[in-house]
């Protein structure tokens, strides 16, 4: 089976779906001729033509709003927002329009739009190339929100997202594009070429939205996480000797509460890890839901390990980025409590 990194697996998913469905078109800033600033759409314009994979004006509000119009009129657009930090000019169109169209029209209209956007830190990008804005969107009924952590899942989830008739915001943790990252920035950068999840079939396959994956089975504590932090949490578990069960949520909305409940009921302990700031982060929602459904199984308070409630800094990036040490400390605290 071929090894792919996440850029290649995104490209492969898009390639397959362009081939399969003539109603799919892909557009966004620099995605056409150039193939995207991260090269995710490389070669696709040349292969499928200018009207199927094209550059857009530099206008996120314009991109999302026209994608909605295309979706209303029978297309299945895949829009790219160059960095998720730049999604906010499109916020009104995403949260008030795309999210509510089906509901407000009594089910008459909808727009099957997928918005792909790189997110997260660890690339020295300062606060405008590092944010994790997923919680703004999980808070908006009508949007599905996905964030994969490896090449295999990326392809399968992206195909599902595009084929889904509901709008999906598809976050791609950019620090993982070229290789897994366990949070140790001093170590030489790893590649996906030896990682089992870097094995990606060339052909069509899909992974349903709303199913979490058990990244590492364990008995002592459940770690709920997604995106880059899956790798940080996994390494924290492996190196600490704590037998943690690390769950990669993959999809935040819909959320796989069955897998989460089964795990927490088994371990009786729960740590939640994400890069985004703590206050009103998705971890707050997870914590509340676990508490609501597993209260009598919990043997210790749930602990969150998150980015601080500050903008994402540049020089102090590694003081901000949740470290393995912080994850280990939280797991210990929860296990020993």
């Amino acid at each position: 089976m071929p090894q792919m990194n996440i850029i290649q697996s995104v490209n492969s998913a898009l390639d397959i779906i362009l081939e399969k469905d003539s109603k799919v078109c892909i557009f966004g800033e620099d995605v056409g001729y150039f193939g995207g600033v991260f090269r995710c759409t490389d070669g696709l314009q040349a292969k499928y033509g200018k009207h199927r994979v094209f550059d857009s004006p530099l206008s996120e509000g314009g991109i999302v709003s026209t994608a909605i119009g295309m979706g209303i009129n029978g297309l299945r657009p895949v829009a790219e927002i160059q960095f998720s930090d730049y999604i906010f000019p499109a916020f009104d169109q995403l949260t008030n329009e795309l999210a509510k169209l089906r509901y407000r029209s009594g089910g008459e209209y909808w727009a099957p739009v997928t918005v792909r956007t790189p997110c997260g830190g660890g690339i020295r990008g300062g606060h405008y190339h590092s944010q994790s804005p997923e919680a703004y969107f999980t808070h908006t009924p009508g949007l599905k929100v996905v964030m994969p952590s490896n090449p295999y899942d990326t392809k399968g989830l992206l195909i599902s997202a595009i084929e889904d008739d509901d709008p999906v915001i598809f976050f791609e943790p950019k620090r993982l594009y070229n290789g897994p990252f366990d949070g140790d920035h001093k170590k030489a950068a790893l590649k996906w070429d030896t990682h089992p999840k870097g094995e990606v079939p060339e052909d069509y396959y899909s992974i349903p939205l709303g199913e979490a994956a058990i990244e590492r089975a364990g008995s002592q504590v459940t770690v709920l996480t997604y995106g880059t932090m899956v790798h940080v949490a996994r390494e924290a578990a492996d190196s600490s000797g704590i037998d943690a069960e690390v769950i990669d949520l993959r999809s935040l909305v819909p959320l796989d509460m069955d897998t989460i409940e089964a795990s927490v009921q088994k371990t009786g302990r729960c740590v939640i890890v994400h890069e985004a700031p703590k206050t009103s982060g998705f971890g707050g929602e997870l914590s509340a839901q676990v508490q609501e459904s597993c209260f009598y199984h919990l043997e210790a308070p749930i602990v969150r390990v998150t980015g601080w409630d500050t903008p994402f800094p540049h020089s102090l990036e590694w003081h901000y980025f949740p470290s393995q040490e912080r994850v280990i400390e939280a797991m210990k605290k929860v296990v020993e409590d």
Binding site: D85, Y86, F88, P89, R124, G125, G126, H127, Y128, H129, P311, P313, H314, S315, L316
Partner: peptide, 29 residues
């Protein structure tokens, strides 16, 4: 991005801010 960076290492390079010169903090968006 050193200790004397007046924007305290919070921004990427060339995102200057300079109050004395009436130059308002440059934003990436």
């Amino acid at each position: 991005t050193n200790s004397k960076d007046n924007v305290k290492g919070r921004q990427m390079p060339v995102h200057y801010s300079w109050k004395e010169g009436n130059l308002v903090s440059i934003s990436s968006p």
